[in-house]
């Protein structure tokens, strides 16, 4: 597998949201607007890339029996680092995303990539895989955020182009499930090649 395809697989073929259907909790909860989706995606990307690098380095030294707890501690450490960084530099985003920043620890994408990829590959491959999957996740979240923001408040990234209130339900919980469901249908129909 070439370096380039390692990187691009995360976008369409192994898209974490629409194909693998992993990490659904933050996907549904934080995509109330395009910017929130983008921020959540980038936060996950940060943890994913760093934990992928470290896990690919320590994997040969970790006994097989305890590898899951070790990986979880590595991931939890980077999540704590991320919490500090966000509290210091982007306190607003930290407040909006709230609970879902510490919950990156139990995001199946991060542990999933560690198990399925990083512990079998070198540092460079794991770095590229982390960036690819992380960007795939970020793009998916941003797209869901854009759709929900247009339907729910008539704006994109805060730029309002439809006057009036929009359909409130799309900013609230039911809209998340409906938008994700219909986007998945479109993805299956037009992008997925069997």
């Amino acid at each position: 597998m070439s370096k380039w395809s390692t990187f691009t697989d995360g976008f369409v073929k192994n898209n974490p949201t629409f194909v693998l259907v992993l990490g659904m909790c933050p996907t549904l909860a934080t995509t109330t607007s395009a910017i929130n989706g983008l921020e959540m995606g980038l936060a996950t990307l940060f943890v994913l890339v760093l934990s992928n690098i470290v896990i690919s380095l320590i994997a040969p030294m970790v006994p097989d029996k305890v590898h899951i707890p070790v990986y979880i501690v590595v991931i939890a450490t980077f999540v704590t680092v991320l919490q500090f960084i966000m509290q210091a530099y982007t306190p607003d985003a930290y407040k909006t995303l709230g609970l879902f920043i510490p919950l990156i620890v139990v995001n199946c994408i991060v542990l999933g990539r560690a198990e399925a990829f990083a512990n079998k590959h070198g540092v460079l491959d794991s770095l590229l895989d982390g960036i690819g999957v992380g960007l795939g996740f970020t793009v998916s979240l941003t797209v869901i955020g854009i759709v929900r923001e247009i339907l729910g408040s008539g704006s994109v990234f805060g730029w309002k182009f439809i006057p009036g209130d929009g359909i409130l339900a799309f900013v609230m919980a039911p809209g998340a499930f409906l938008v994700l469901g219909y986007l998945m249908v479109l993805f299956n129909k037009y992008l997925k090649r069997s």
């Binding site: 339900a169 609230m172 919980a173 039911p174 809209g175 998340a176 499930f177 409906l178 994700l180 469901g181 219909y182 998945m184 249908v185 299956n188």
Partner: peptide, 15 residues
């Protein structure tokens, strides 16, 4: 996909 849409409708009811 149909599962998500069903949950969406269920969530609407819970709203």
């Amino acid at each position: 996909p149909i599962a998500f849409i069903t949950v969406g409708i269920l969530a609407l009811a819970f709203l």
